[in-house]
Design a protein around this nucleic acid. Structure first.
Lengths: 127, 127
DNA sequence: CCAATATATGAATATATGTTCATATATAAT
DNA sequence: ATTATATATGAACATATATTCATATATTGG
């Protein structure tokens, strides 16, 4: 059913809610659960300061695991665990070169998310 | 010390690391802890499917608390708790109108974050 | 093949988080 | 004032998460 039709023929929640039309429209337009979950999972991975630091480092240059550990001051194990999560969310990609594995950001979406996030925290900070 | 100077005079981690220059540069350019924490805190708030759903609803239209509860199927209490977190992260703003409180997205950064996040999960899904 | 190095991962533990329940606050109507 | 309605919040509990430690895998050099 189209949103336009719902706007006229919207009797699903009449007896329960204050604003049935807004509610029905919102339900019709709502994200699918699966998309909401995937989106939340992506942000959840971004939602840790050590991972944010790793991603920010990788936004400047490609780094291997031990470099990331050295810069962040984290243990190699902790870094590897976090990189695994970042890989799982397709936020970073990697290439193996001998014994070392070099990591970079997966694509420009990641850079944009970081940049917009930084804009958000900087904007209106003094309010 | 400027990044250019560090690039030449970079002896902090010589004896410890594989790629001292990259490491020193990365350290020099790294996010401040406070910024990394704020950024992570913002993404952490975005990293929950119920909150993502609420934000997505609000990206379409202003809604009051009970409407959000009705659309999401959550309890009023759970919604209020989540809205508190969203307010704390300046992701939503609100206005009181009598007994009701109407919520909207705080600014366009939030919309952009959602949009880019959705692009990210949609892009290369079949790989 | 064996030792050394770089990275990855499983298990365990300590901390953080989301929901519910009960209750508080704020506004409006009678 | 009293009652009803909309929203907010504190405490508690159950679940999720990040790090550490120990160990496994992968690659290189001898």
């Amino acid at each position: 059913m189209s949103v336009e039709l719902l706007e006229q023929n919207c009797d699903v929640c009449q007896q329960l809610c204050e604003h049935p039309q807004a509610i029905c429209l919102a339900k019709a337009e709502a994200l699918f659960d699966q998309d909401a979950n995937m989106l939340a999972d992506t942000f959840k991975i971004l939602g840790d300061s050590t991972r944010v630091k790793i991603l920010d480092m990788l936004s400047h240059r490609e780094l291997c695991v031990c470099d990331i550990a050295a810069v962040s001051g984290m243990s190699q194990s902790a870094v590897s665990h976090q990189l695994r999560l970042l890989r799982g969310a397709r936020l970073v990609k990697y290439r193996r070169e001998g014994k070392m594995v070099w990591y970079t950001l997966d694509d420009n979406h990641v850079l944009t998310l970081l940049a917009v996030g930084i804009q958000h925290i900087k904007h209106g900070q003094g309010e």
